[in-house]
């Protein structure tokens, strides 16, 4: 056990300050200190992708990053996707295609898909599968997830609007 440190992390645009042990993971910081339980604990060794969030715009496994490493940075989680009652196009298309069952992997899956569409607005099916290959789902067999991501990509292209999502830094 080490001496506690004060960290401030901007989560979905809002600064969250907490005294944490140096060993506290970013995942536990989000869940316990920021009170945002949408990001879930899966394998705790960086394989399943359940805990995926963006840190300064890049997808990371929050179970493998320490809260002290994220000090002063911007973190984006599933709770940041919707604007009030208005869902993000990815959430809409996941809903339409029933791209989930138990819902546990869903937040990490959404963030991974969001990360893909930011980098590649027109992915092929194979590219979607490849981009999501670091996120395990035990319920769906991925079929409806892939459909959901492809439709969200098409909708985003059609609307040619900047999707709401990460707050501008």
């Amino acid at each position: 056990m080490g001496k506690e440190r004060l960290v401030t992390i901007r989560v979905n645009g809002q600064p969250v300050e907490a005294q944490v042990e140096p060993r506290r993971s970013l995942l536990d910081f989000l869940r316990e200190d920021a009170g945002l339980t949408g990001t879930h604990t899966g394998c705790e060794h960086g394989i399943c992708g359940t805990c995926t969030v963006l840190v300064d715009g890049e997808a990371v496994r929050s179970c493998l990053m320490l809260a002290v490493q994220a000090n002063g940075r911007d973190v984006f989680t599933v709770e940041g996707l919707a604007r009030g009652e208005k869902l993000h196009p990815l959430q809409e298309s996941f809903w339409k295609h029933h791209a989930l069952q138990c819902g546990y992997c869903t937040p990490g899956m959404l963030i991974a898909a969001y990360d893909l569409l930011k980098r590649n607005p027109s992915p092929t099916e194979a590219q979607v599968r490849d981009a999501l290959a670091g996120n395990i789902c035990r319920c769906t067999g991925y079929v409806q997830i892939v459909e959901g991501v492809l439709e969200a990509a098409a909708n985003l292209r059609e609307k040619a609007e900047t999707p709401h999502g990460e707050p501008s830094v």
């Binding site: 945002l36 949408g38 709770e79 919707a82 869902l87 809903w95 989930l100 819902g103 869903t106 937040p107």
Partner: peptide, 9 residues
């Protein structure tokens, strides 16, 4: 689905 998609599971 809505609650799961919005992190409210």
């Amino acid at each position: 689905d809505r609650r799961f998609l919005t992190g409210q599971g």
